[in-house]
């Protein structure tokens, strides 16, 4: 029983770490690309700085969405999933 609970907790922590780690790659690359292109645009047309900046921040916030999803999954894995899984295990064994 203790070993089973240990495996559940360990796998939840591992899953949360992997989820956040891999999930952060996409938004990182995407936002970097957006900012690089915004810098290029400002360099080409310095007078359009304010418009480009506000659009870029907006776009970054939307590109961040997938990263935020993985964060929500990671939080669920750490705070919610272990309790549910341990309860399920206890019910299955009949304790």
């Amino acid at each position: 029983m203790e070993i089973a609970i240990g495996i559940i907790l360990g796998c939840c922590a591992l899953g949360a770490g992997i989820c956040m780690g891999i999930g952060a790659i996409g938004p990182g690359v995407g936002e970097g690309h957006a900012v690089a292109n915004a810098c290029e645009a400002i360099g080409r047309q310095p007078e359009s700085k304010s418009a480009v900046t506000s659009t870029m921040v907006m776009g970054c916030a939307i590109a961040e969405t997938t990263g935020i999803y993985s964060l929500v999954i990671a939080i669920l894995l750490i705070f919610v999933a272990p309790g549910i899984m341990v309860n399920t295990l206890k019910n299955a064994i009949g304790l």
């Binding site: 916030a61 939307i62 961040e64 969405t65 935020i68 999803y69 964060l71 929500v72 939080i75």
Partner: peptide, 16 residues
Amino acid sequence: ISMAMRHYGNVISGTV
């Protein structure tokens, strides 16, 4: 769902 999750996730990430 994505609108709710985006806002909630950003606020909770700051807290965490």
